[in-house]
Design a protein around this nucleic acid. Structure first.
Length: 183
DNA sequence: TACTGGATTCACT
DNA sequence: GTGAATCCAGTAA
């Protein structure tokens, strides 16, 4: 069952937890989300200072926000809103379908290394900036899924914190070998 | 118009 | 553990 756009009219941190274990699909590739990171209006976030690029977070919820970093990688976020602009970064995915295509794009056959990072999963799925601003379930789909069964949620401090506070806004599926290797 | 640095990854030591 | 690869949004002038 597809996730409804209305669900994203909520707090980014709550949604980051909620998205774990859901299925993501683009073209013929599918995977289960195993790691997410919440971004709200704090100094480390694009939502802190709204610019033409990040305006989508202010104006919408349930839209894909995709941007380019370090000259070579894309990051996939979904916008959230409960009065305050925010987004959830999809950091890692467990591949289930379209693995051959992912291997080709990622130039590796190591299953654990296909989607275990924000840049990696965009490369594996073939997601680029062209999809920025598209609606949920327009091209990239999110579904309810129970393939993981019951799982424990781990949390840790967000990477790239600049507010000084240790915000525990990074969530992952405990014991999953598919999460990113970043500390 | 010109500079700066990043929500990363990979190859190398 | 360190540094290179590489583009473009944001900022300052």
């Amino acid at each position: 069952m597809l996730l409804k756009k209305e669900i994203f009219k909520k707090d980014a941190v709550e949604l980051a937890r909620f998205l774990l274990g859901r299925e993501i699909q683009y073209n013929n590739c599918r995977g289960i989300i195993v790691e997410t990171e919440a971004y709200k209006s704090d100094p480390a976030s694009h939502a802190y200072k709204i610019t033409p690029r990040s305006r989508i977070m202010l104006d919408s919820y349930g839209k894909w926000y995709i941007y380019f970093v370090y000259g070579m990688f894309f990051c996939l976020n979904i916008t959230t809103n409960e009065g305050e602009p925010g987004a959830v970064l999809i950091r890692a995915v467990q591949p289930i379908d379209g693995i051959e295509a992912m291997e080709k794009r990622r130039k590796t056959t190591e299953l654990l290394n296909l989607c275990s990072g924000p840049g990696k999963l965009c490369t594996a799925f073939g997601i680029t900036k062209g999809l920025n601003g598209t609606d949920l379930n327009e091209k990239i789909f999110l579904r309810h899924c129970n393939k993981l069964g019951k799982f424990e949620i781990g949390k840790s401090s967000r990477i790239g914190i600049s507010s000084g506070k240790e915000l525990e806004w990074r969530f992952f599926v405990k014991n999953s070998p598919f999460v990113s290797k970043v500390k």
